[in-house]
């Protein structure tokens, strides 16, 4: 296989970006829990890194915003929990299977990909609700635990789950980097830019969007499985939370810069900290504040702060190129 054909980006640039990406993440995940004496916080951070990367692949790269994309997270959590609690699977295998189940579900939803813009966003929301109603239905209690939740504390391993989540968060960030620099990634970005012209360039846009959708739902499913493992016991509402696992993630990605490699990571790091802080002191205002933030972001910095940072950097360090 010829590297040049698969990866358009320069090999050294990719390696450099990988370094820039892995180092701070590794430090954050290693030292964070020690400094703040709160591993749960960093567990959630790792989960959000994965979700932001997952959303970035489908929303950032292809331009389609699945508002209810948290459904894949929830299904990953449930898949894992059900396989462990009711079928005695080892947790690692259960997480993998749960994520595959999410990907399978996304395949079922591929007809939605034929919709565009707001229709797609809303249809994905409807899909979210429908799946939630199935999993929380009391007549399915023997299969899903129903409204009473599901418990699989037997595999509870608070340090191992964190270590796995941290490693997989780094892997997911590297995956986005690889996608971004590949011919696959550039096709996705072209779909975002112009879904008609991209076809004329020979790209089967439905096929590539389906691939992006599959990767994204699989990654969300992994995040969900890990989150379920971390919780050990959860009610349907804990994983089927539109605000926690869809809206927040959308805000993170928009804030950092969708379609960029580093933006979503920065969005998660900055805003998750803000979110936790606000929850601590103004818990009843958090959602209002984030709602307003979402509106402001879309109005004033639709391309996220990464673009502003890059522009500022250019102005400061290479003034002759500044606009």
């Amino acid at each position: 296989m010829n590297f040049r054909k698969v990866f358009l980006a320069d090999r050294r640039m990719l390696a450099r970006d990988a370094g820039i990406m892995v180092l701070p993440l590794a430090l954050l995940f290693l030292l964070g829990p020690m400094l703040f004496a709160n591993q749960g916080l960093f567990m959630e951070l790792a989960i959000y890194v994965m979700l932001a990367d997952a959303l970035n692949i489908v929303y950032g790269f292809t331009g389609y915003l699945p508002f209810g994309f948290g459904v894949f997270f929830a299904v990953g959590a449930y898949g894992t929990a059900i396989l462990v609690a009711f079928h005695g699977w080892p947790v690692a295998l259960a997480i993998l299977a749960g994520a595959l189940f999410s990907a399978l579900l996304s395949l079922l939803f591929t007809p939605l990909l034929r919709l565009s813009g707001a229709y797609f966003a809303i249809a994905s929301l409807a899909a979210f609700e429908a799946v939630y109603l199935i999993f929380s239905n009391s007549s399915l209690t023997s299969v899903t635990g129903g409204p009473y939740g599901i418990s699989f504390t037997s595999v509870y391993a608070p340090n191992l789950d964190y270590a796995v989540a941290a490693v997989l968060a780094v892997v997911s960030a590297l995956t986005v980097l690889a996608v971004s620099g590949s011919s696959f990634g550039i096709a996705l970005k072209a779909i975002r830019e112009d879904r008609f012209a991209v076809e004329l360039a020979g790209v089967n846009s439905l096929k590539y969007r389906t691939y992006a959708w599959l990767i994204s739902s699989f990654l969300s499913g992994v995040a969900g499985g890990l989150y379920g493992w971390y919780l050990g016991f959860f009610y349907p509402e804990a994983v089927f939370s539109l605000t926690d696992f869809s809206v927040l993630v959308i805000v993170f990605v928009l804030f950092g810069g969708r379609g960029t490699v580093f933006g979503p990571l920065i969005g998660v790091a900055v805003l998750f900290a803000v979110y936790e802080f606000l929850t601590l002191y103004f818990s009843n205002l958090v959602l209002i504040i984030f709602g307003v933030l979402l509106v402001l972001l879309i109005l004033f910095i639709p391309n996220g702060i990464m673009e502003q940072v890059t522009r500022l950097g250019r102005l400061l360090f290479r003034p002759e190129e500044g606009e």
């Binding site: 054909k5 550039i186 970005k189």
Partner: peptide, 18 residues
């Protein structure tokens, strides 16, 4: 109908690749 957010060269690369 250019791909606005991509460079001129990337625009051509996509068509060359696919």
């Amino acid at each position: 109908h250019p791909f606005h957010g991509l460079t001129v060269r990337e625009n051509v690369d996509i068509a060359l690749l696919f």
